[in-house]
Amino acid sequence: MIPKTEKTRPFPQTTISFDKKLRENDLSLKAIAVEILQVNVGKLCNQACKHCHVDASPKRTEIMQRETIDACLKVLREHKIPTLDMTGGAPEMIPDFRYFVTEARKMGTNVMVRHNLTVMFEEGREDLAEFFAENEVEVVCSLPYFMQQQTDAQRGKGVFDKSVEALKKLNTVGYGKDESGLILNLVYNPVGAFLPPEQSAIEADFKRELKNRYDIVFNNLYTITNMPIARYLDWLRRSGNEKSYMQKLVNAFNPTTVDGLMCRNTLSVDWLGNLYDCDFNQMLEIPVSLEVGQTIQDFNPETFFGREIMTNSHCFGCTAGSGSSCGGTVA
């Protein structure tokens, strides 16, 4: 479903609309459940990565306040949503981060934090590894490659070395080790205008190389396609790659990915409590369809199940090849 009013954020150009592609394949895109509440707690980050779809950076000031956090907790509790997926920015940089995590864990919610690793070395956050372990948080860390050149090219100078140190700290408190039950997953993003490798193949490379080079272990590696919006779209345009990248995504459209797309079982919340079908729509300012509620305070599962997902050309980023979601491939 194409949004009725497109906002100011730029969309990538494609030769065919995403909706038309769905229709050509006799497909439609509707939500089936809300199993994951993905809360983007703010755009403040200690990094400014080149592929960031949030345009997050140390200069951003948007952060979620306690009132909105409490509204999210209320929805998680009352509707027994199994998983809270915290993202940002760097979620750990908002003042109420630990409050949000501990309150969610008290009610038995699975808590997943999208952690950039380097934030662990920011003042006052040196004990994050221990905090994560005490609360049995599932930690999902960005590491685009097991080598410095690629990682620093995407995420900034010095990020790779800090990331290695942070992973060692997480291993020290038990993360990534089978017997501990503490889950440490990594996220691979292509460092450029190309699609991710086959997930199991690159996971095997990461496991071998990180173990051999740094004695680091982890559980799973998720491959995520770079989403052609925001700072990454700016880079595609500056580098003359927009047309070929979008054509690559369109050519790689895989109809079998549609059933598993994360927008079908995830609801995205922004720092003000507004609701979206996914974090990408959130950044493009495309709210959930107008027939249903627009804020976390309006949440009513009956109206949200079966809602039509709002789409645009960027959605080709989730349906290319083996598909892409916050949990890796979907097909």
Binding site: Y145, M147, Q149, Q150, P190, G192, F194, L195, P196, P197, E198, A201, I202, D205
Partner: peptide, 12 residues
């Protein structure tokens, strides 16, 4: 070059 990168190879 594209398919090498998309299969996880690096420039080394």
């Amino acid at each position: 070059t594209n398919s090498s990168l998309e299969n996880g190879s690096n420039m080394e």
